[in-house]
Every structure is written in structure tokens, then in C-alpha cells.
Simulated scan of single mutants.
Amino acid sequence: MSTKIDMTPMVDLAFLLLTFFMLTTTFAKPQTMEINMPVKDVPKEEQIVLKASNAMTIILGDNDRIFYYFGLGDPAENPELIETDYSDSGIRDVLRSPKVKNNDKMTVMIKPMDESRYKNVVDILDELRITDTKKYALVEITDNDKQLVETKIGQ
């Protein structure tokens, strides 16, 4: 006589265990970055004036290009626009440089051009987070900044 083993209860047990572990597992939670937005109606006398020595401007261009200069971009200052990339030896090294890190009042202004992508903004915000940059702001790009980029690209 042959023996026959009924595997039906074992399959039921396997599915019950599978269901239990699927329902009790913690799935990966989406990672979000908290951004504090400024108050809209701040009186002019309460606004803090930013000095050129405490400012760094990052311009996000098209085709994943990134430019930066130190200062506020006043045409009289004639800022030197430098092109870099998003690698760890690119903009990350600039943000970790002593000129940026040793200045507690340094504010990084991010100016995306119309041709830049949303991914570029997320990438630069990630770099600011990685380098532990405390003060930064998303700012609208000025005509002078656009002119600086066009001049740099034309070289």
C-alpha cells in the first residue's frame, strides 16, 4: 500500500504566513524634504539686507548645466561665472570649500532658468542638504544673470 500525504493544510498555512508577513512589514516610506516658506507680507524695515561677501549664486541652466559665482551679481562687480557639474567633485566641493563653510552668514541663492528641469532643482537641494548648508533660497533669475550665462556659453 502506498501512503498519500495531503498537502492542502500546508498550502493554507503557507498562504496565511505569507499574508501575515506582508501585512506586518513596514514598507519604505517616501522621503520628503521640509521647506520653510517665508512670510509674505514682511515690512521693508524688518527685511535683512544681504551683503555681497555673504552671497553665493547658483544658476541652473539647460542640459543639466550649472553655473555659480560669489556675490549678488551686480554688473558693476563683474562676477566671474564658473561652470561646474552635479558630481561630488563639482558643486559639492564648492559648497564644502572654506569660502562657503567658514562663513556662517553665507546665503546660497538658487536661480533656475526657464530651460532647467525640475530634477536640477531637486539635485541642487540634495547637494545643499548633503553639505549641510544652512541658508539658501530659491530666487527668480535676473536679466543680468541670463546675460552672464549667455556670455559664458558663447565663449
Rank of each mutant, 00 (worst) to 15 (best):
I35R: 07
L13I: 08
I48L: 08
T3H: 15
M33H: 08
P38D: 01
N78A: 12
T142I: 04
I59T: 06
I66P: 00
V122Y: 12
P43C: 06
A28I: 14
K105G: 02
Y118F: 12
E83R: 07
T24A: 10
R92Y: 09
S89D: 13
T142Y: 05
L95N: 03
V94I: 15
K152G: 02
R129D: 12
K134D: 12
V100N: 01
F67N: 00
D85E: 03
P9Q: 11
L128T: 00
K4H: 12
M10I: 15
T142S: 15
N102Q: 09
G154C: 09
M22S: 08
F67C: 06
S53Q: 08
Y69K: 04
K4R: 11
E150D: 15
P30C: 00
D12C: 09
R92W: 07
M109S: 00
F21H: 09
N78G: 05
T8Q: 12
L72I: 01
L95D: 03
L95Y: 05
D126W: 11
L17A: 11
L16C: 05
L18P: 02
F21E: 07
M56H: 00
N144F: 10
N144K: 10
M106A: 04
F15L: 14
D12P: 01
G90K: 01
V121W: 06
M7E: 06
Q47L: 15
D64G: 01
L138F: 09
T24S: 11
E83H: 02
V39Y: 13
L13F: 07
K111L: 11
Q31Y: 08
Y118S: 09
I153H: 03
M33V: 10
I58E: 03
K146V: 06
T57L: 02
G154Y: 08
L125T: 09
Y86D: 02
M37K: 12
I66Y: 03
Y136H: 15
K146L: 10
M22T: 14
S97L: 02
K134F: 05
G71R: 00
I124Y: 02
M10E: 12
F20E: 04
D104P: 05
D12H: 11
V121R: 10
K146A: 03
D123S: 14
I35C: 04
K101M: 09
